[in-house]
Amino acid sequence: MMGGYVEGIIAILCINLIFAYGIYLTAASGQLNLGGAGFQAIGAYVAGVCSNYFELPIVFSVLGGILGAGLIGFLISFPVLRTRGVYMVLATFAFALVISGIILNSEFLGGATGMVVPAYAPVEVLIFSTFIIILIVFWLMASRVGLAMRAVHDDDVVSEIMGVNVKGIQVFAFTLGGALAGLSGALYAHHYSFIEAQYFNAVLSIFVLLFVLIGGTQTAWGPLFGASFFTLVPEILRLGDTEWRYVIFGILIVLMMIFRPQGVVTRTFVHRASKIFYRTAER
């Protein structure tokens, strides 16, 4: 079997990937969700409650986490979608802080001391879920729904004239994105067996949005690159937990925005890469 160290890295990579795809779906349709940690927290706590209090098997408690976060995402999308641009960024940000504040003040959920979730999900479950999610997102982005999402990202007025139900697409993206973030939270709860409100903080929301924006929102490859790069590189460099690791992270962010403001993986990039790939394959 895998060593504990590698297994730990793979687990956090899986959780970050699913989480990043949740935020990516909203970003791909032109909305920035800076409240990712809020949805992840909902997923984690719903799963925890389902598992601890209702003693459901893991499959159903995870499903509960997905549905819970998706439902909240659906409900919150209507007021949030009334706002635009920076206001939307901050509305979602406020949402996440309200969620973590509510959890902190709720004795039922363990408050500041956190919640133990004994039912354990091994890393294989995480890997399997991640594969499924990546497949679903790639499928979605290759479909007409994905095309419409990207069109809404570029120009919502023209999309509406082209017959796209813009509001519907945005609500759909927000709901599904919330559900995926909820899935990542539920898996987190079951894998680490302990959750606390302090973990799902503003910094987490900021980091996952950075994964997505730096990876690039034009194709489904973007978050795959962003989340993997920023999860794995610090480990590979063996920088450990020193502050220099974060300084380098910050410098990378600034440089990437200067040289590739549309994200590292753009559509043109994927197109050229696939051309090279096919040419090599033909030889």
């Binding site: 960024v89 570029d154 924006l213 929102t217 300084v247 910050g250 410098i251 600034v254 925005m257 403001p261």
Partner: peptide, 16 residues
Amino acid sequence: ATEHAIPLVSSLGFLI
């Protein structure tokens, strides 16, 4: 729609 995110992301980099 997400263009205003670009300077925002850079400034987050500087914050870190």
